[in-house]
Design a binder for these strands. Structure first.
Length: 281
DNA sequence: CGTGCGGCCTGAATGC
DNA sequence: TGCATTCAGGCCGCAC
């Protein structure tokens, strides 16, 4: 499940491998993965040179000369990587971008949830999903972060997962940061105290940066630019720990559905405040 | 406005 | 052994 740190790691890993190289051919093995008309896609991508690889929220974006953005959303199981000798196409390899030095970029996705689309500058800015994205958590000050949650009645976890509220956070880092701050995921945003929001901010920034430093991270299906999985999953404190002991207090970790996702919670460290009086106005 | 749910999709794990 | 069920979850569209 590539979230912000994994996509960031992929972008950083891929950029030096493809910078200033030209896409000489694109092979579309499963057109359903495209969110752009197939013929337009083929015609516009071929012959373009890659001038930047970057990330916005969980989107992986290749800038192509002169004015194109090749955008990937990896969802849960998508991978964008450069195969090395001996690694080849399998049944989940949906797109192959052949570069002028003979190397290739693969886009694969076992579950076909991910997608690839092509925009020019104005098209990207007009794309509703992109234009509505909230701020990047690593570009926010503590005060800006706190402001996001004031007056919001939705549960704090739903807000963290809402890409329009704050961008790039998925189920894993939502659970990790809430645990680090001792906040129950079902607490209304406006009922989380200012001090707890400060803890959440610093926990989130810390866990995102640590995961990036660990060379990307995540769980099951993540692979970096060369197809290797990261190491950060070994450091999860609460995610995936159902039935195990809380690392802080040894209470049994529980799960429940919050905002439609499985949430791992220490019922002792993360108390649900029923006091809905806002403390952060 | 806010919330919840089904749908998309496939493979791993579990149940009988 | 083999078949059926459940689960994983980002995002969208829709109902209430």
């Amino acid at each position: 499940m590539p979230e912000l740190p994994e996509v960031e790691t992929i972008a950083r890993g891929i950029e030096p491998l493809v910078l200033n190289k030209t896409i000489v051919q694109v092979t579309i093995r499963y057109a359903g993965i495209l969110h752009t008309d197939l013929e337009q896609f083929e015609k516009q991508v071929s012959g373009r040179t890659i001038v930047r690889v970057w990330r916005r929220a969980k989107l992986l974006i290749f800038d192509l000369e002169p004015d194109l953005h090749l955008v990937f959303h990896l969802k849960m199981t998508g991978k964008v990587w450069l195969p090395q000798d001996g690694q080849s196409i399998d049944k989940h390899t949906h797109l192959i971008f052949s570069l002028n030095d003979g190397s290739r970029i693969f886009f694969e996705d076992m579950r076909k949830f991910g997608y690839c689309a092509l925009f020019d500058k104005s098209g990207l800015l007009a794309w509703r999903f992109y234009s509505q994205l909230g701020p990047e958590p690593l570009h926010l000050s503590e005060n800006e972060f706190i402001k996001i949650f004031s007056g919001r009645k939705s549960r704090i976890k739903a807000l963290l997962l809402d890409q329009r509220v704050i961008a790039g956070i998925g189920n894993i880092y939502a659970d990790e940061s809430l645990f680090m701050a001792g906040i129950h995921p079902e607490t209304p945003g406006c009922a989380v105290g200012k001090e707890d929001l400060k803890k959440l901010y610093h926990g989130l920034v810390q866990v995102l940066n640590q995961a990036i430093e660990a060379g990307g991270s995540s769980f099951r299906d993540y692979r970096n630019a060369l197809g290797y999985s990261g190491m950060f999953q070994e450091k999860f404190l609460i995610y995936g720990k159902k039935g195990q002991c809380c690392p802080h207090c040894q209470t049994m970790v529980e799960t429940r559905k919050v905002a439609g996702r499985t949430s791992c919670i220490c019922p002792s460290c993360q108390k649900l405040s029923t006091d809905t009086v806002s403390q952060n106005e």
